[in-house]
Design a protein around this nucleic acid. Structure first.
Lengths: 253, 253
DNA sequence: CCCAATCTTTCACATGGGTTAATTTCGCGG
DNA sequence: CCGCGAAATTAACCCATGTGAAAGATTGGG
Protein backbone atom coordinates (compact mmCIF):
# COMPACT_ATOMS: atom_id res chain seq x y z
CA UNK A 1 0.00 0.00 0.00
CA UNK A 2 2.89 2.34 0.58
CA UNK A 3 5.78 2.97 -1.72
CA UNK A 4 9.18 2.24 -0.25
CA UNK A 5 11.16 5.21 0.96
CA UNK A 6 14.85 4.89 1.62
CA UNK A 7 17.71 7.15 2.62
CA UNK A 8 18.80 7.79 -0.94
CA UNK A 9 15.56 9.53 -1.81
CA UNK A 10 13.91 11.27 -3.61
CA UNK A 11 12.56 8.66 -5.95
CA UNK A 12 9.18 10.31 -6.13
CA UNK A 13 8.77 10.55 -9.88
CA UNK A 14 6.39 13.48 -9.64
CA UNK A 15 9.04 15.52 -7.88
CA UNK A 16 11.67 14.47 -10.38
CA UNK A 17 9.44 15.50 -13.20
CA UNK A 18 8.29 18.82 -11.80
CA UNK A 19 11.83 19.78 -10.93
CA UNK A 20 12.68 19.44 -14.57
CA UNK A 21 10.71 22.63 -14.93
CA UNK A 22 11.87 24.48 -11.86
CA UNK A 23 13.42 23.55 -8.53
CA UNK A 24 10.98 23.12 -5.66
CA UNK A 25 11.50 24.08 -2.02
CA UNK A 26 11.94 21.39 0.60
CA UNK A 27 8.51 22.20 1.96
CA UNK A 28 6.94 21.76 -1.45
CA UNK A 29 8.70 18.46 -1.94
CA UNK A 30 7.57 17.28 1.47
CA UNK A 31 4.00 18.09 0.57
CA UNK A 32 4.23 16.13 -2.66
CA UNK A 33 5.89 13.26 -0.89
CA UNK A 34 3.22 13.21 1.74
CA UNK A 35 0.40 13.31 -0.76
CA UNK A 36 1.85 10.41 -2.68
CA UNK A 37 2.42 8.24 0.36
CA UNK A 38 -0.70 6.20 -0.03
CA UNK A 39 -0.71 4.36 -3.28
CA UNK A 40 -2.44 1.25 -4.45
CA UNK A 41 -1.33 -1.51 -6.74
CA UNK A 42 -3.42 -1.96 -9.86
CA UNK A 43 -3.05 -4.98 -12.09
CA UNK A 44 -2.33 -4.74 -15.80
CA UNK A 45 -5.21 -3.91 -18.14
CA UNK A 46 -7.48 -2.52 -15.50
CA UNK A 47 -9.46 0.66 -15.83
CA UNK A 48 -8.94 3.50 -13.40
CA UNK A 49 -11.94 5.36 -14.76
CA UNK A 50 -14.27 4.79 -17.69
CA UNK A 51 -15.79 6.99 -20.33
CA UNK A 52 -19.09 8.28 -18.95
CA UNK A 53 -18.02 8.21 -15.31
CA UNK A 54 -17.95 11.46 -13.36
CA UNK A 55 -14.35 12.43 -12.64
CA UNK A 56 -13.93 12.38 -8.88
CA UNK A 57 -10.23 12.29 -8.45
CA UNK A 58 -6.96 12.81 -10.14
CA UNK A 59 -4.58 9.92 -10.69
CA UNK A 60 -0.85 10.01 -10.22
CA UNK A 61 1.20 7.16 -11.62
CA UNK A 62 4.14 6.15 -9.45
CA UNK A 63 5.09 2.97 -11.27
CA UNK A 64 4.09 1.26 -14.48
CA UNK A 65 2.43 2.43 -17.67
CA UNK A 66 -1.15 3.56 -18.01
CA UNK A 67 -2.98 5.14 -20.91
CA UNK A 68 -5.93 7.21 -21.99
CA UNK A 69 -8.05 5.47 -24.58
CA UNK A 70 -11.37 5.38 -26.35
CA UNK A 71 -13.35 2.47 -27.69
CA UNK A 72 -15.04 3.14 -31.02
CA UNK A 73 -18.48 1.89 -32.05
CA UNK A 74 -16.90 -0.94 -34.05
CA UNK A 75 -15.11 -2.15 -30.93
CA UNK A 76 -11.65 -0.98 -31.88
CA UNK A 77 -9.58 0.83 -29.31
CA UNK A 78 -7.46 3.88 -29.79
CA UNK A 79 -4.85 4.89 -27.23
CA UNK A 80 -4.40 8.65 -27.06
CA UNK A 81 -1.72 9.06 -24.42
CA UNK A 82 0.67 7.09 -22.31
CA UNK A 83 0.97 7.91 -18.66
CA UNK A 84 4.31 6.98 -17.15
CA UNK A 85 5.62 7.42 -13.60
CA UNK A 86 5.37 11.03 -12.52
CA UNK A 87 2.40 11.69 -14.81
CA UNK A 88 -0.74 13.10 -13.41
CA UNK A 89 -4.01 13.12 -15.25
CA UNK A 90 -5.64 16.43 -15.89
CA UNK A 91 -6.06 18.56 -12.78
CA UNK A 92 -9.02 20.37 -14.18
CA UNK A 93 -11.32 17.48 -14.84
CA UNK A 94 -13.45 18.28 -11.86
CA UNK A 95 -15.50 20.82 -13.72
CA UNK A 96 -16.64 18.31 -16.30
CA UNK A 97 -19.63 16.15 -15.58
CA UNK A 98 -18.42 13.02 -17.28
CA UNK A 99 -15.26 11.56 -18.72
CA UNK A 100 -15.12 11.53 -22.51
CA UNK A 101 -12.54 8.74 -22.49
CA UNK A 102 -11.24 6.01 -20.25
CA UNK A 103 -7.98 5.68 -18.37
CA UNK A 104 -6.56 2.24 -17.78
CA UNK A 105 -3.34 0.53 -16.92
CA UNK A 106 -1.18 -1.20 -19.48
CA UNK A 107 1.27 -2.87 -17.13
CA UNK A 108 0.73 -3.28 -13.39
CA UNK A 109 0.91 0.13 -11.76
CA UNK A 110 1.29 1.91 -8.47
CA UNK A 111 -1.33 4.61 -8.49
CA UNK A 112 -2.15 7.44 -6.11
CA UNK A 113 -5.74 8.64 -5.99
CA UNK A 114 -5.90 12.33 -5.27
CA UNK A 115 -9.29 13.61 -4.22
CA UNK A 116 -10.23 17.19 -4.93
CA UNK A 117 -9.09 18.47 -1.56
CA UNK A 118 -5.58 17.18 -2.05
CA UNK A 119 -5.36 18.65 -5.50
CA UNK A 120 -6.37 21.98 -4.00
CA UNK A 121 -3.70 21.62 -1.38
CA UNK A 122 -1.09 21.20 -4.08
CA UNK A 123 -2.33 24.09 -6.12
CA UNK A 124 -2.15 26.46 -3.21
CA UNK A 125 1.63 26.29 -3.35
CA UNK A 126 2.63 28.69 -6.09
CA UNK A 127 5.73 26.82 -7.19
CA UNK A 128 3.83 23.57 -7.41
CA UNK A 129 0.94 25.24 -9.17
CA UNK A 130 3.29 26.65 -11.77
CA UNK A 131 5.02 23.35 -12.28
CA UNK A 132 1.72 21.52 -12.64
CA UNK A 133 0.59 24.17 -15.04
CA UNK A 134 3.70 23.57 -17.10
CA UNK A 135 3.11 19.86 -16.93
CA UNK A 136 -0.41 20.30 -18.27
CA UNK A 137 0.87 22.38 -21.15
CA UNK A 138 3.41 19.71 -21.98
CA UNK A 139 0.65 17.10 -22.01
CA UNK A 140 -1.24 19.20 -24.52
CA UNK A 141 1.84 19.71 -26.65
CA UNK A 142 2.50 15.99 -26.57
CA UNK A 143 -0.98 15.30 -27.77
CA UNK A 144 -0.44 17.66 -30.70
CA UNK A 145 2.81 15.97 -31.54
CA UNK A 146 1.05 12.61 -31.52
CA UNK A 147 -1.51 14.01 -33.90
CA UNK A 148 1.22 15.08 -36.27
CA UNK A 149 2.96 11.78 -35.78
CA UNK A 150 -0.04 9.77 -36.87
CA UNK A 151 -1.19 12.25 -39.46
CA UNK A 152 2.03 12.93 -41.25
CA UNK A 153 4.64 10.24 -40.73
CA UNK A 154 5.17 6.78 -42.18
CA UNK A 155 4.64 3.77 -39.97
CA UNK A 156 8.35 3.34 -39.40
CA UNK A 157 8.92 6.98 -38.52
CA UNK A 158 5.90 6.92 -36.25
CA UNK A 159 7.08 4.06 -34.14
CA UNK A 160 10.60 5.45 -34.05
CA UNK A 161 9.27 8.80 -32.92
CA UNK A 162 7.33 7.25 -30.08
CA UNK A 163 10.40 5.36 -28.90
CA UNK A 164 12.38 8.60 -28.88
CA UNK A 165 9.72 10.46 -26.96
CA UNK A 166 9.54 7.78 -24.32
CA UNK A 167 13.32 7.78 -24.00
CA UNK A 168 13.26 11.46 -23.11
CA UNK A 169 10.22 11.25 -20.86
CA UNK A 170 11.50 8.27 -18.95
CA UNK A 171 14.95 9.80 -18.50
CA UNK A 172 13.22 12.65 -16.73
CA UNK A 173 12.07 10.36 -13.98
CA UNK A 174 15.15 8.20 -13.85
CA UNK A 175 13.61 5.28 -15.68
CA UNK A 176 15.75 5.38 -18.79
CA UNK A 177 19.48 5.51 -19.18
CA UNK A 178 21.16 7.19 -22.09
CA UNK A 179 19.91 4.59 -24.51
CA UNK A 180 17.55 2.06 -22.94
CA UNK A 181 14.41 1.53 -20.93
CA UNK A 182 11.72 -0.94 -20.02
CA UNK A 183 8.74 -0.74 -22.33
CA UNK A 184 5.98 -2.95 -20.87
CA UNK A 185 3.75 -2.76 -23.91
CA UNK A 186 2.61 -5.31 -26.45
CA UNK A 187 2.78 -4.85 -30.20
CA UNK A 188 -0.97 -4.89 -30.23
CA UNK A 189 -1.07 -1.94 -27.85
CA UNK A 190 1.54 -0.17 -29.91
CA UNK A 191 -0.69 -0.66 -32.91
CA UNK A 192 -3.71 0.77 -31.13
CA UNK A 193 -1.56 3.76 -30.26
CA UNK A 194 -0.12 4.42 -33.68
CA UNK A 195 -3.13 3.61 -35.77
CA UNK A 196 -1.43 0.52 -37.22
CA UNK A 197 -2.35 -3.14 -37.29
CA UNK A 198 -0.45 -5.47 -35.00
CA UNK A 199 0.99 -7.23 -38.01
CA UNK A 200 2.35 -4.03 -39.38
CA UNK A 201 3.83 -2.96 -36.06
CA UNK A 202 5.67 -6.22 -36.12
CA UNK A 203 6.99 -5.57 -39.62
CA UNK A 204 8.11 -2.12 -38.60
CA UNK A 205 9.93 -3.35 -35.52
CA UNK A 206 11.68 -5.99 -37.58
CA UNK A 207 12.88 -3.33 -39.95
CA UNK A 208 14.11 -1.06 -37.18
CA UNK A 209 15.98 -4.05 -35.79
CA UNK A 210 17.36 -5.00 -39.17
CA UNK A 211 18.61 -1.47 -39.66
CA UNK A 212 20.54 -1.81 -36.42
CA UNK A 213 18.61 0.99 -34.77
CA UNK A 214 17.05 -0.87 -31.86
CA UNK A 215 16.95 -4.07 -29.86
CA UNK A 216 13.55 -4.81 -28.37
CA UNK A 217 13.06 -8.03 -26.55
CA UNK A 218 11.22 -9.09 -23.39
CA UNK A 219 9.92 -5.59 -22.81
CA UNK A 220 13.44 -4.20 -22.82
CA UNK A 221 14.30 -1.60 -25.41
CA UNK A 222 17.81 -0.58 -26.35
CA UNK A 223 18.26 2.20 -28.86
CA UNK A 224 21.52 1.43 -30.57
CA UNK A 225 21.81 4.71 -32.42
CA UNK A 226 19.95 7.41 -30.56
CA UNK A 227 20.91 10.32 -32.77
CA UNK A 228 20.08 8.37 -35.91
CA UNK A 229 16.71 7.25 -34.60
CA UNK A 230 15.83 10.82 -33.66
CA UNK A 231 16.90 12.16 -37.02
CA UNK A 232 15.10 9.41 -38.88
CA UNK A 233 11.83 9.98 -37.07
CA UNK A 234 12.04 13.77 -37.17
CA UNK A 235 12.02 13.86 -33.39
CA UNK A 236 12.49 17.35 -31.98
CA UNK A 237 12.08 17.49 -28.21
CA UNK A 238 11.04 21.13 -28.20
CA UNK A 239 7.43 20.18 -27.54
CA UNK A 240 8.39 18.67 -24.20
CA UNK A 241 9.57 22.11 -23.10
CA UNK A 242 12.44 20.86 -21.02
CA UNK A 243 14.54 23.83 -20.33
CA UNK A 244 17.36 22.52 -18.24
CA UNK A 245 20.08 20.52 -19.84
CA UNK A 246 19.91 17.90 -17.09
CA UNK A 247 16.40 16.94 -17.92
CA UNK A 248 17.29 16.09 -21.45
CA UNK A 249 20.61 14.45 -21.23
CA UNK A 250 21.43 13.32 -17.73
CA UNK A 251 20.87 9.63 -17.38
CA UNK A 252 19.88 8.19 -14.08
CA UNK A 253 19.98 4.57 -13.00
CA UNK B 1 -10.07 48.31 -36.20
CA UNK B 2 -13.22 47.94 -34.17
CA UNK B 3 -15.89 45.35 -34.61
CA UNK B 4 -19.32 46.72 -35.26
CA UNK B 5 -21.67 46.81 -32.32
CA UNK B 6 -25.37 47.24 -32.88
CA UNK B 7 -28.51 47.29 -30.80
CA UNK B 8 -29.24 43.62 -31.35
CA UNK B 9 -26.10 42.52 -29.55
CA UNK B 10 -24.48 40.42 -28.19
CA UNK B 11 -22.72 38.97 -31.17
CA UNK B 12 -19.49 38.57 -29.28
CA UNK B 13 -18.71 34.95 -30.09
CA UNK B 14 -16.61 34.49 -26.99
CA UNK B 15 -19.58 35.33 -24.81
CA UNK B 16 -21.84 33.08 -26.84
CA UNK B 17 -19.40 30.26 -26.44
CA UNK B 18 -18.68 30.68 -22.75
CA UNK B 19 -22.35 30.93 -21.96
CA UNK B 20 -22.79 27.50 -23.45
CA UNK B 21 -21.04 26.36 -20.32
CA UNK B 22 -22.67 28.60 -17.76
CA UNK B 23 -24.48 31.95 -17.83
CA UNK B 24 -22.33 35.00 -17.13
CA UNK B 25 -23.31 38.10 -15.21
CA UNK B 26 -23.83 41.38 -17.03
CA UNK B 27 -20.62 42.69 -15.51
CA UNK B 28 -18.68 39.70 -16.78
CA UNK B 29 -20.11 40.11 -20.22
CA UNK B 30 -19.26 43.77 -20.23
CA UNK B 31 -15.69 42.97 -19.34
CA UNK B 32 -15.42 40.48 -22.16
CA UNK B 33 -17.03 42.89 -24.57
CA UNK B 34 -14.65 45.63 -23.54
CA UNK B 35 -11.60 43.42 -23.89
CA UNK B 36 -12.60 42.37 -27.37
CA UNK B 37 -13.33 45.86 -28.60
CA UNK B 38 -10.05 46.38 -30.32
CA UNK B 39 -9.53 43.84 -33.02
CA UNK B 40 -7.46 43.81 -36.14
CA UNK B 41 -8.08 42.38 -39.55
CA UNK B 42 -5.65 39.73 -40.68
CA UNK B 43 -5.56 38.50 -44.25
CA UNK B 44 -5.89 34.85 -45.18
CA UNK B 45 -2.85 32.60 -44.78
CA UNK B 46 -0.97 34.88 -42.43
CA UNK B 47 0.77 33.77 -39.28
CA UNK B 48 -0.23 35.15 -35.93
CA UNK B 49 2.73 33.53 -34.22
CA UNK B 50 5.39 31.11 -35.38
CA UNK B 51 7.03 28.06 -33.89
CA UNK B 52 10.05 29.24 -31.93
CA UNK B 53 8.60 32.63 -31.03
CA UNK B 54 8.06 33.48 -27.36
CA UNK B 55 4.34 33.60 -26.61
CA UNK B 56 3.52 37.15 -25.61
CA UNK B 57 -0.18 37.31 -25.98
CA UNK B 58 -3.28 35.27 -26.34
CA UNK B 59 -5.35 35.42 -29.50
CA UNK B 60 -9.10 35.55 -29.69
CA UNK B 61 -10.77 34.93 -33.02
CA UNK B 62 -13.83 37.07 -33.66
CA UNK B 63 -14.33 36.23 -37.32
CA UNK B 64 -12.85 33.79 -39.79
CA UNK B 65 -10.98 30.52 -39.43
CA UNK B 66 -7.46 30.15 -38.06
CA UNK B 67 -5.45 27.06 -37.22
CA UNK B 68 -2.58 25.63 -35.25
CA UNK B 69 -0.07 23.87 -37.43
CA UNK B 70 3.42 22.47 -37.67
CA UNK B 71 5.75 22.24 -40.63
CA UNK B 72 7.73 19.00 -40.78
CA UNK B 73 11.35 18.68 -41.89
CA UNK B 74 10.23 17.51 -45.35
CA UNK B 75 8.22 20.69 -45.76
CA UNK B 76 4.80 19.17 -45.30
CA UNK B 77 2.32 20.91 -43.06
CA UNK B 78 0.03 19.36 -40.54
CA UNK B 79 -2.92 21.27 -39.10
CA UNK B 80 -3.67 20.28 -35.53
CA UNK B 81 -6.66 22.45 -34.65
CA UNK B 82 -9.09 24.86 -36.16
CA UNK B 83 -9.84 28.05 -34.34
CA UNK B 84 -13.24 29.49 -35.15
CA UNK B 85 -14.95 32.62 -33.83
CA UNK B 86 -15.09 32.58 -30.06
CA UNK B 87 -11.97 30.44 -29.78
CA UNK B 88 -9.11 31.57 -27.69
CA UNK B 89 -5.66 30.07 -27.86
CA UNK B 90 -4.24 28.60 -24.72
CA UNK B 91 -4.34 30.95 -21.76
CA UNK B 92 -1.41 29.31 -20.12
CA UNK B 93 1.18 29.73 -22.80
CA UNK B 94 2.91 32.49 -20.94
CA UNK B 95 4.95 30.13 -18.84
CA UNK B 96 6.52 28.53 -21.86
CA UNK B 97 9.60 30.10 -23.38
CA UNK B 98 8.83 29.34 -27.00
CA UNK B 99 5.96 28.16 -29.15
CA UNK B 100 6.23 24.56 -30.28
CA UNK B 101 3.90 25.22 -33.22
CA UNK B 102 2.58 28.08 -35.30
CA UNK B 103 -0.83 29.70 -35.42
CA UNK B 104 -2.02 31.19 -38.67
CA UNK B 105 -5.17 32.26 -40.39
CA UNK B 106 -6.90 30.19 -43.02
CA UNK B 107 -9.45 32.74 -44.20
CA UNK B 108 -9.29 36.45 -43.44
CA UNK B 109 -9.90 36.97 -39.73
CA UNK B 110 -10.78 39.51 -37.10
CA UNK B 111 -8.39 38.88 -34.25
CA UNK B 112 -8.06 40.34 -30.78
CA UNK B 113 -4.60 40.38 -29.20
CA UNK B 114 -4.81 39.96 -25.47
CA UNK B 115 -1.66 40.81 -23.58
CA UNK B 116 -0.94 39.13 -20.29
CA UNK B 117 -2.53 41.86 -18.21
CA UNK B 118 -5.86 41.52 -19.95
CA UNK B 119 -5.81 37.77 -19.59
CA UNK B 120 -5.23 38.25 -15.88
CA UNK B 121 -8.13 40.65 -15.73
CA UNK B 122 -10.39 38.01 -17.20
CA UNK B 123 -9.16 35.29 -14.92
CA UNK B 124 -9.84 37.32 -11.84
CA UNK B 125 -13.55 36.94 -12.45
CA UNK B 126 -14.46 33.55 -11.07
CA UNK B 127 -17.25 32.83 -13.51
CA UNK B 128 -15.10 33.74 -16.47
CA UNK B 129 -12.18 31.79 -15.10
CA UNK B 130 -14.35 28.71 -14.76
CA UNK B 131 -15.74 29.10 -18.24
CA UNK B 132 -12.29 29.55 -19.73
CA UNK B 133 -11.11 26.57 -17.78
CA UNK B 134 -13.94 24.55 -19.29
CA UNK B 135 -13.07 25.90 -22.72
CA UNK B 136 -9.49 24.75 -22.31
CA UNK B 137 -10.61 21.28 -21.31
CA UNK B 138 -12.83 21.11 -24.36
CA UNK B 139 -9.89 22.10 -26.56
CA UNK B 140 -7.90 19.23 -25.10
CA UNK B 141 -10.76 16.81 -25.57
CA UNK B 142 -11.15 17.97 -29.16
CA UNK B 143 -7.51 17.30 -29.80
CA UNK B 144 -7.92 13.78 -28.47
CA UNK B 145 -10.93 13.23 -30.67
CA UNK B 146 -8.91 14.40 -33.67
CA UNK B 147 -6.22 11.93 -32.76
CA UNK B 148 -8.77 9.13 -32.73
CA UNK B 149 -10.28 10.46 -35.91
CA UNK B 150 -7.03 10.27 -37.82
CA UNK B 151 -5.78 7.16 -36.11
CA UNK B 152 -8.84 4.99 -36.32
CA UNK B 153 -11.27 6.08 -39.00
CA UNK B 154 -11.38 5.72 -42.77
CA UNK B 155 -10.85 8.78 -44.92
CA UNK B 156 -14.55 9.15 -45.57
CA UNK B 157 -15.50 8.83 -41.91
CA UNK B 158 -12.75 11.25 -40.98
CA UNK B 159 -13.92 14.02 -43.21
CA UNK B 160 -17.54 13.43 -42.23
CA UNK B 161 -16.60 13.57 -38.58
CA UNK B 162 -14.88 16.90 -39.01
CA UNK B 163 -17.89 18.33 -40.78
CA UNK B 164 -20.11 17.23 -37.92
CA UNK B 165 -17.83 18.69 -35.30
CA UNK B 166 -17.73 22.03 -37.06
CA UNK B 167 -21.50 22.03 -37.36
CA UNK B 168 -21.82 21.78 -33.61
CA UNK B 169 -19.03 24.21 -32.81
CA UNK B 170 -20.28 26.82 -35.22
CA UNK B 171 -23.87 26.53 -34.01
CA UNK B 172 -22.57 27.47 -30.59
CA UNK B 173 -21.54 30.88 -31.83
CA UNK B 174 -24.44 31.39 -34.18
CA UNK B 175 -22.49 30.66 -37.33
CA UNK B 176 -24.29 27.52 -38.37
CA UNK B 177 -27.95 26.80 -38.76
CA UNK B 178 -29.43 23.40 -38.21
CA UNK B 179 -27.72 21.98 -41.25
CA UNK B 180 -25.36 24.43 -42.94
CA UNK B 181 -22.43 26.77 -42.52
CA UNK B 182 -19.65 28.57 -44.31
CA UNK B 183 -16.46 26.56 -44.48
CA UNK B 184 -13.73 28.81 -45.86
CA UNK B 185 -11.19 26.06 -46.34
CA UNK B 186 -9.60 24.50 -49.39
CA UNK B 187 -9.40 20.80 -50.08
CA UNK B 188 -5.67 21.08 -49.71
CA UNK B 189 -6.06 22.46 -46.19
CA UNK B 190 -8.57 19.76 -45.39
CA UNK B 191 -5.99 17.24 -46.49
CA UNK B 192 -3.30 18.73 -44.28
CA UNK B 193 -5.76 18.47 -41.42
CA UNK B 194 -6.87 14.93 -41.96
CA UNK B 195 -3.59 13.41 -43.01
CA UNK B 196 -4.88 12.84 -46.55
CA UNK B 197 -3.68 13.96 -49.95
CA UNK B 198 -5.62 16.69 -51.70
CA UNK B 199 -6.57 14.25 -54.39
CA UNK B 200 -8.04 11.86 -51.91
CA UNK B 201 -9.95 14.58 -50.08
CA UNK B 202 -11.51 15.36 -53.41
CA UNK B 203 -12.48 11.72 -53.97
CA UNK B 204 -13.97 11.56 -50.49
CA UNK B 205 -16.02 14.72 -50.97
CA UNK B 206 -17.33 13.39 -54.27
CA UNK B 207 -18.45 10.25 -52.56
CA UNK B 208 -20.17 12.10 -49.72
CA UNK B 209 -21.94 14.16 -52.36
CA UNK B 210 -22.86 11.14 -54.41
CA UNK B 211 -24.31 9.50 -51.31
CA UNK B 212 -26.55 12.53 -50.91
CA UNK B 213 -25.05 13.42 -47.55
CA UNK B 214 -23.69 16.87 -48.30
CA UNK B 215 -23.54 19.74 -50.74
CA UNK B 216 -20.28 21.64 -50.65
CA UNK B 217 -19.73 24.40 -53.13
CA UNK B 218 -18.16 27.86 -53.00
CA UNK B 219 -17.21 27.48 -49.35
CA UNK B 220 -20.81 26.75 -48.43
CA UNK B 221 -21.58 23.46 -46.80
CA UNK B 222 -25.03 21.96 -46.49
CA UNK B 223 -25.43 18.71 -44.62
CA UNK B 224 -28.42 17.05 -46.21
CA UNK B 225 -28.75 14.29 -43.67
CA UNK B 226 -27.34 15.39 -40.36
CA UNK B 227 -28.27 12.34 -38.34
CA UNK B 228 -26.96 10.01 -41.02
CA UNK B 229 -23.66 11.86 -41.33
CA UNK B 230 -23.18 11.74 -37.57
CA UNK B 231 -23.98 8.07 -37.40
CA UNK B 232 -21.78 7.27 -40.37
CA UNK B 233 -18.77 9.07 -38.92
CA UNK B 234 -19.26 7.82 -35.39
CA UNK B 235 -19.67 11.37 -34.20
CA UNK B 236 -20.55 11.63 -30.53
CA UNK B 237 -20.58 15.19 -29.24
CA UNK B 238 -19.84 14.19 -25.67
CA UNK B 239 -16.25 15.38 -26.00
CA UNK B 240 -17.45 18.93 -26.54
CA UNK B 241 -19.00 18.86 -23.08
CA UNK B 242 -21.98 20.98 -23.96
CA UNK B 243 -24.35 20.57 -21.16
CA UNK B 244 -27.26 22.73 -22.09
CA UNK B 245 -29.63 21.64 -24.76
CA UNK B 246 -29.55 25.05 -26.42
CA UNK B 247 -25.89 24.83 -27.21
CA UNK B 248 -26.36 21.69 -29.16
CA UNK B 249 -29.54 22.18 -31.02
CA UNK B 250 -30.56 25.81 -31.14
CA UNK B 251 -29.74 27.26 -34.51
CA UNK B 252 -29.01 30.92 -34.88
CA UNK B 253 -28.95 32.98 -38.03
C1' DC C 1 8.33 -28.86 -15.10
C1' DC C 2 4.32 -28.41 -17.98
C1' DC C 3 0.29 -26.25 -19.77
C1' DA C 4 -2.50 -22.69 -21.44
C1' DA C 5 -2.92 -18.25 -22.54
C1' DT C 6 -0.83 -14.49 -24.58
C1' DC C 7 2.42 -12.55 -27.76
C1' DT C 8 5.11 -12.54 -31.77
C1' DT C 9 6.05 -13.77 -36.28
C1' DT C 10 5.11 -15.27 -41.01
C1' DC C 11 2.43 -15.80 -45.29
C1' DA C 12 -0.65 -14.77 -49.01
C1' DC C 13 -3.53 -11.67 -50.73
C1' DA C 14 -6.54 -7.41 -50.93
C1' DT C 15 -7.13 -2.41 -51.03
C1' DG C 16 -7.20 2.33 -49.47
C1' DG C 17 -4.96 6.03 -50.32
C1' DG C 18 -0.56 8.29 -52.35
C1' DT C 19 1.71 10.33 -56.45
C1' DT C 20 2.26 12.77 -60.63
C1' DA C 21 0.55 15.32 -63.84
C1' DA C 22 -2.79 17.03 -67.00
C1' DT C 23 -7.28 19.28 -67.49
C1' DT C 24 -11.15 21.98 -66.14
C1' DT C 25 -13.47 25.30 -63.35
C1' DC C 26 -13.76 29.26 -60.42
C1' DG C 27 -12.95 33.85 -58.46
C1' DC C 28 -11.53 38.20 -59.24
C1' DG C 29 -8.85 42.37 -60.64
C1' DG C 30 -8.46 45.27 -64.49
C1' DC D 1 -15.77 40.84 -70.67
C1' DC D 2 -10.85 38.93 -70.48
C1' DG D 3 -7.15 36.64 -68.47
C1' DC D 4 -4.58 34.78 -64.70
C1' DG D 5 -3.67 32.19 -60.66
C1' DA D 6 -5.74 29.32 -57.39
C1' DA D 7 -8.60 25.53 -56.57
C1' DA D 8 -11.03 21.43 -58.01
C1' DT D 9 -11.25 17.44 -60.69
C1' DT D 10 -9.84 13.38 -63.30
C1' DA D 11 -6.81 9.60 -64.74
C1' DA D 12 -3.26 5.99 -64.49
C1' DC D 13 -0.42 3.61 -61.76
C1' DC D 14 1.46 1.50 -57.50
C1' DC D 15 2.86 0.87 -52.87
C1' DA D 16 2.20 1.01 -47.88
C1' DT D 17 -0.56 -0.99 -44.89
C1' DG D 18 -4.67 -3.89 -43.71
C1' DT D 19 -6.77 -8.68 -43.20
C1' DG D 20 -7.24 -13.42 -41.90
C1' DA D 21 -5.26 -17.30 -40.57
C1' DA D 22 -1.91 -20.21 -38.70
C1' DA D 23 2.50 -21.39 -36.88
C1' DG D 24 6.12 -20.43 -33.34
C1' DA D 25 7.73 -18.38 -28.98
C1' DT D 26 7.22 -16.67 -24.21
C1' DT D 27 5.50 -16.29 -19.83
C1' DG D 28 3.49 -17.11 -15.56
C1' DG D 29 0.64 -20.13 -12.71
C1' DG D 30 -0.15 -24.47 -10.70
Amino acid sequence: MTVETSADMPVNPLILKLEAFHALSEADKELLTRLSTTSRTVGPREDLIREGDPPERVYLILEGFACRYKILPDGSRHIMAYMVPGDLCDLHVFILKTMDHSIGTLSACEVVDLPRAQVMEMIERPAIARALWWSGLVDGATLREWLVNIGARSAEERVAHLLCELLVRLRLVGLATEDRYELPITQNELGDTMGLSTVHVNRVLQRLRAEGLIIFKSQKLVILKVAELMAFSGFNPNYLHLESRRTLYAARG
